[in-house]
């Protein structure tokens, strides 16, 4: 598989404060994103996710390290022409309307005049802003700004789309719509580099992930590689049995409306619980085996650090 992004030993530090003190933000990041995949870049706030993206885009210069996009130096116009970028909390020229804004950016990609109008109209439709195409961006809500942000990122039909926290601050419907667009991009053969701390979304759509904590990549690989499929515990919701009888089989987690949520760690204990229920004529409402989630892995890694 060909490489879309190749980062090797990336270091970046900033001098902060009145009496400048050096703070290391990235401490030797190395990662590879393959063409055509959705790559999740995962980390807590302040881990260095946005700094990495800014280095890729040339908004800040790394102290050390190498960045290549499709085999080109990341600052070359050839590389930049293949990128689409949506920043976190996007803010655009609020004196322009949505159409004017996309028109302005299309000029920077040297898109031909006769193609511009068609492309802009199509993109506005893709992100669902047809009704607001002639509204000034200053009147846009956060969700609408996110959509127009995504439209500008797709103007040049990029091979690589970098999205910095694209789902933050959106309502569930907005999140689903953006998620659907991201999946569609993958289907069209584009590579998506997605930075987020919303684990549920990353887990749902990403092929591979890298976890960054304190400027270092702690783990990276496919979700299957990172998350074990073994059952961690089984959650059983039961009723009609005295909890005291279940004490040595599992931990009663919560009780509501006469129902008890029991967390059972050993597989043998699940059988014992079921047998007890049968003999006491109790009821079983649900039984869900829980495998490890990305959230479990993430919390564990962050705690270790």
């Amino acid at each position: 598989m060909e490489t879309a992004v190749h980062i090797e030993n990336l270091h970046k530090s900033f001098k902060l404060g009145f009496i400048p003190k050096t703070k290391k933000i990235l401490k030797g990041i190395s990662l590879t994103v393959n063409q055509g995949e959705i790559f999740g870049y995962l980390g807590p706030n302040g881990a260095g996710k946005t700094t990495t993206i800014k280095c890729i885009l040339g908004l800040i210069y790394p102290d050390q390290g190498k960045i290549e996009l499709f085999g080109h130096h990341h600052l070359s116009l050839k590389a930049k022409a293949q990128i689409g970028f949506l920043p976190e909390n996007p803010y655009f020229y609020d004196h322009l309307t949505a159409s004017e804004f996309l028109y302005f950016y299309s000029q920077l990609f040297l898109i031909k005049k006769n193609e511009r109008e068609k492309k802009i109209k199509n993109l506005i439709q893709v992100v669902g802003l047809e009704k607001w195409a002639d509204l000034q961006l200053r009147k846009f809500s956060r969700g609408m700004l996110q959509r127009i942000g995504l439209a500008q990122a797709l103007l040049n039909e990029p091979s690589l789309v970098l999205l910095d926290e694209p789902l933050g601050g959106l309502d569930p419907i907005g999140r689903k719509e953006i998620r659907d667009i991201i999946v569609r991009l993958k289907e069209e053969g584009k590579t998506v580099f997605l930075s987020s701390h919303i684990l549920q979304d990353i887990e749902m759509i990403c092929d591979r992930v890298a976890i960054i904590v304190n400027g270092e990549i702690i783990n990276q690989g496919t979700l299957q590689d990172l998350i074990s499929e073994k059952i961690l515990f089984t959650e059983i919701v039961i009723s009609g049995v005295d909890i005291k009888e279940l004490e040595n089989m599992g931990e009663p987690f919560s009780e509501r409306g006469g129902r008890t949520l029991l967390r059972v760690r050993k597989e043998g204990d699940v059988e014992r619980v079921l047998e007890l229920l049968r003999s006491k004529k109790g009821k079983i409402h649900s039984l869900i085996p829980r495998t490890e989630t990305l959230e479990d892995l993430f919390v564990e890694i962050v705690k270790q650090r």
Binding site: K54, L57, G58, L59, L77, K78, P87, P90, L108, Q152
Partner: peptide, 14 residues
């Protein structure tokens, strides 16, 4: 300040 430069400089311009 308003970070409009982020998207602008990520385009193929010097």
């Amino acid at each position: 300040e308003k970070k409009t430069i982020y998207t602008l400089l990520s385009k193929p311009i010097h």
